[in-house]
Design a protein around this nucleic acid. Sequence first.
DNA 1: CATGCAATGATTGTCAACAATCAAACTCTT
DNA 2: AAGAGTTTGATTGTTGACAATCATTGCATG
Lengths: 218, 218
Amino acid sequence: MHRESTASVIARQLRTAIMERTLQPGAQLSETALSAQFGVSRGPLREAMQRLVQEGLLRSEPNRGLFVIELDEADIRDIYVARAAVEGAAATMIAKARIPAALRELRAACDAMSKSLELGDPAKLSDADFRFHDVLVQCSGSRRLARMHQTLIVETRMCLTALEGTYQQPLELVEEHIQIVDAIEAGDVKLTLKRVELHMDEALRRLIHAEDNDEGYV
Amino acid sequence: MHRESTASVIARQLRTAIMERTLQPGAQLSETALSAQFGVSRGPLREAMQRLVQEGLLRSEPNRGLFVIELDEADIRDIYVARAAVEGAAATMIAKARIPAALRELRAACDAMSKSLELGDPAKLSDADFRFHDVLVQCSGSRRLARMHQTLIVETRMCLTALEGTYQQPLELVEEHIQIVDAIEAGDVKLTLKRVELHMDEALRRLIHAEDNDEGYV
DNA sequence: CATGCAATGATTGTCAACAATCAAACTCTT
DNA sequence: AAGAGTTTGATTGTTGACAATCATTGCATG
């Protein structure tokens, strides 16, 4: 019947809800409400929730309940530090190994970003952006980097969803991605790492800046 | 009463058991046996197990059960790739921030290694080794790097426990750690990163080599 | 009027019984 | 004797009920 455990399915649904802010940061997760909503009993739901606790997306207060984490500026910086480490390593691996299929996919993701930019569609631009970073880590072939990245992306999306498609300097954004792929294609490991780090710094800067404008929604 | 959830406690006990090979790779986890052993019901135990599934220490086969992961050579390489990414980032942060307390702790860990080496105590050497890497990541102050690292260390210990204190070239091992701290103290970010990566490469080499001698125990 | 205390309601944490699924042993057939 | 089908035992997956804990509300008191 299932080719996947129910805990795994529910965990993914919870992850999506957190990402899209259906479950808002700081909100308490009602077990009865959620189990009813997902059509399962409390048992499997609690198992799924424990997965997210391990991921760090939920915080547990014993005998109180589980709450969606709240991200302050220090957290956001930490997310980008971790992403730089993970994606830097992934990009480096691809640059060293010279995988043509990876480059093709990365180019495709960049093209999708450019197209969304021309169309002025911030939602599609965002999707293409995340697709790029997903492809990057997947193509590295490292299962552990991929697992770590998954959680980091959820946290990143949590932040960006709050801004609702308010993209700062989208032209620069696209350009940074293209330059990363260029460095990878050239097989220049040092340049690749440098450009990934630069991209993270800039992305962080744009995010913090956008938040200052939006004032307070974290 | 509890200042920590039971799932969290059981998860840690499971982690230790996997690390020490009390639960051997490939072994199926019997829910009834483990719940009796830990003195809890199956409910909380299953919650704890789901945490380890998320970590990647257990693999789930729906309607079959949960099994301890088995690490082949590709996995071991992947572990060291991920560790290089995480610890490289951590060391870099410390080198940039120049935290005196961190240097003191790292030196202390190095001294403990040297002492264990002189005494010819491989168990203590191993402990000091792991302590060094833990301190390194903790001192970076990155909660996300720390979380990722925790799992990677369990997997590393899984491998090393199999070799039972067979340390290859322990003198080089200690020296590599000292050189990393030297680079951090000098505030040389590039050198720091290079030496962390070198250390991981060498550690991986020694591990694979030791395994070839031991023949097969993975 | 503020403060401390007790009762109350709701929520989480835990458990044991039930249903579903799978692997292995056994039997029957060819 | 070999193989397919069936039965059986054991394990996981799920559920609903019970116990424990905490926050809130109302009340009595200084």
